[in-house]
Design a protein around this nucleic acid. Structure first.
Lengths: 263, 263
DNA sequence: TTTCTCGTTTGATTCAGGTCAAAGTTCTTC
DNA sequence: GAAGAACTTTGACCTGAATCAAACGAGAAA
């Protein structure tokens, strides 16, 4: 899909150049990273990285979506993370990989060989620093997701999921969409995969999507294509009230012994 | 509670010296870290760090247990992490703290002032590297916990929780306990806090503990003191079957072939 | 066109865990 | 040590999501 490596130019035209870990490097360093990098495309559904696999793969996600999954022996499984363009795949400093990585859509990767990448990491602390930043962001997202899994109801989970996707997936309408807070995108995952993200079943996800559709919070162009007429309403359904506290009168939850400041 | 700082000796007698982030530093560097460190004890139940609080606290946990919590506006809450002796508290490079930190038991901290610690971090890449390692471990644990929240049943969750505690809390019997795989410890959390770790209610946690007791997998000395006669049985109840590197056998996945070996 | 397949939706039913309500245990405090 | 208060267990009942079971598209092959 790509012309053979052209160390000088490939990175300069790279779409994710300034959002990926590469942004930590200066022009000279970029060249040496580029020298060891290899482009690779992976079709949807193909495994990229096996759980417990001895040697990790290091790669930038250039386009597409990668899902990271964990599985119990009896088949119960969970998607512990999704990687979008500019995200980094691979656990530095870990001999074993703690999860599977699989292409959710067709994926374009920029792959770095293990040894070479780790050497670069050791030589350029800027690069390690940036990787650290990425890891912290991943940890934040993970902890946020734990709250969802532990305490949110099915509808809130599905709404939260759509919100998360809407934030990271390319919008189909580029006109004055943002202005109107209207979003239109293609879901990168099947219902089954969505349910594996949310700790629900396919049926429940489907029902909740129907529910959101009935309420007019989302519109389905087709199974995968979703239009969100008003992000604020979706945010409300997701109970994603970052900061602004308006205790939704939908259901009065007994706030257990809290750090009560009032009555 | 502590004698005034003695830069030369305090660290050398520190119980967590070699497990904490400090182990990344050499003797000279330790002294400069020690110079800015301050001992502090926090009684159980006291807040250490507020969510969204502008400036982070940096500290080693010397003794006791700290819980990190996230709360939805209506009071639904979740404990996203527990910190044990030698763990590190605080988000480097983040202006805002994404969670509450509260002393679950009486806690002894070794606190570092923000500015000074970040300077040390910048000067000694070894220290940042170690912090990175700690963060990766935290991320691993977090992702493991997501699987628990998403897919494990109540009894498995409680068993997993006890297992996790058993691994990290000091054992009360030091004789030939390990040999027999027998563990005896004091729960650092109340039932309510346990339920907030597991995404369950107090009642369900209580019932599952009773259940485990009935099955003879655990014994209750009192509400907080637990004896585990056979760790293997608890591990089984937790569905914590380590090792497995095979994808789900039940759910038929079309993705099988690995991409790692070349075309 | 028909037929097959795969992913999705919808309906009926079940059940694990939540909710509500006591009652039993510890631990304080006076 | 009596009186509470706080925490924990237990019981009865309810409900939200899982499970079981069709039916419904949409795309692919014939």
């Amino acid at each position: 899909m790509f012309p053979p490596n052209d160390h000088a130019s490939r990175c300069t035209t790279c779409a994710i150049r300034h959002r990926s870990i590469c942004d930590a490097l200066n022009a000279t360093e970029i060249v040496s990273l580029n020298r060891i990098a290899r482009s690779r495309t992976v079709p949807a559904g193909r495994m990229i990285l096996g759980e417990g696999q001895t040697r990790s793969v290091f790669a930038n996600i250039v386009s597409g979506v990668v899902k990271l999954t964990k599985t119990l022996d009896d088949g119960r499984q969970h998607i512990i993370g999704l990687l979008f363009p500019s995200d980094f795949l691979g656990r530095a400093f870990r001999a074993e990989n703690p999860y599977f990585a699989e292409a959710a859509t067709d994926v374009e990767l920029c792959v770095f060989p293990t040894a070479g990448f780790e050497r670069l990491l050791a030589e350029h602390s800027e690069l390690e620093h940036r990787l650290f930043q990425f890891t912290l962001t991943e940890l934040d997202a993970c902890q946020e997701w734990m709250l969802l899994l532990a305490r949110k109801k099915a509808e809130e989970r599905v709404a939260s999921f759509l919100l998360m996707i809407a934030k990271r997936v390319p919008n189909m309408e580029c006109s004055l969409a943002e202005k109107r807070e209207q979003v239109h995108f293609v879901l990168p995952l099947s219902r089954s995969e969505v349910s594996d993200c949310l700790g629900l079943t396919i049926e429940t996800v489907s029902r909740q999507i129907t529910q959101l559709k009935t309420k007019g919070i989302i519109e389905l162009v087709n199974y995968r294509e979703i239009l969100i007429p008003d992000l604020a309403r979706l945010r409300e359904a997701a109970y994603d009230l970052a900061g602004h506290a308006s205790p939704s009168p939908l259901k009065a939850h007994k706030a257990r012994r809290s750090v009560s400041s009032d009555d």
